[in-house]
Amino acid sequence: MKNLNGCVAVVTGVSHGKGIGAAICKKLAIEGADIFFTHLNADRDWIANFQASIEEHKVKCANVEIDLSESSTPAKLLDLVNLKLGSPTILVNNAAHSTRDGYMNLDAKILDDHYAVNMRATFLLSVEFARRIRHSQTAMGRIINLTSGQALGPMAGELAYSATKGAISAFTLSLSAELAPLGITVNAVNPGPTDTGWMNEEIKQELLPKFPFGRIGIPEDAARLVAFLASEEAQWITGQIFNSEGGFLRS
């Protein structure tokens, strides 16, 4: 029996095959959920092939290229999901904007660019999703945000990214209290350093000794936790920030 039969999941920020977003889509599809994913500036052939691979799990799948930095995007996106697949019951805010900065480079534009995607898009998508569930009186709703463990240690040279992603943790906790009476859970997942294609061999060798399990995190690690939080079994879990890092040692 698949845990998510009949559910429609929206996953943002799925633009390449090695990412956490792609792994989440695959895992949710395996569990029976129909998938709607967003992307930006992705290879068209990859998008078509990826959608086909999701549909191999006997679920429906649709996608859209959309700019989450635009303030009107959340309502447009959920309207499109409803048109293509029906009312969503699972929202995974995976999309993120990240550039290097540091105190010598940080300026208003860098801050605004990070805020628009990491904070505003996540916040507005979450509340619009919840409003629609309330009006439809759906029995279950799941919001799962991706964060990066900003409270566990500094991220030098990534001031705008760490600040805006850190805000997601605070938002998760407060929103969870508001939405619990509606049966909607709100949680966040920090997957720790994950090999999504950005790590060169030098970085891997530097990080590997810090993982007690003897390997670096992979996207499927995060996907398994997200799928659990999306399931009925996780109905009593809300307002939590899961630092699922494989025991990553920062010291």
Rank of each mutant, 00 (worst) to 15 (best):
K204Q: 12
M155P: 00
N105D: 13
T138W: 01
F213H: 07
E232C: 07
Y103N: 08
N190P: 02
G214N: 03
S176R: 01
V127I: 15
Y103P: 04
S174F: 01
E158I: 01
P181L: 02
E201S: 13
P193W: 13
P154Y: 12
R120P: 06
A227H: 09
R132P: 10
G102Y: 01
H114K: 13
R120G: 01
G149L: 03
A230L: 12
A227I: 10
T147I: 06
R215K: 14
W198G: 05
S98C: 15
E178H: 07
Y103S: 11
G102I: 00
L182S: 14
W236F: 15
L159C: 08
G141K: 06
R132N: 13
S174R: 03
F171Q: 09
T147C: 12
I143A: 09
W236R: 13
A180L: 09
L125F: 05
A130N: 10
A163M: 13
Q235V: 13
S148D: 12
D107N: 15
I184V: 14
V117H: 02
E201R: 09
L124N: 12
E158F: 10
R215A: 08
T196V: 14
G141I: 05
T147E: 07
G214Y: 00
H114L: 10
A95M: 11
R224W: 00
A95I: 09
M140W: 05
Y161W: 05
A116T: 06
G217F: 03
Y161K: 06
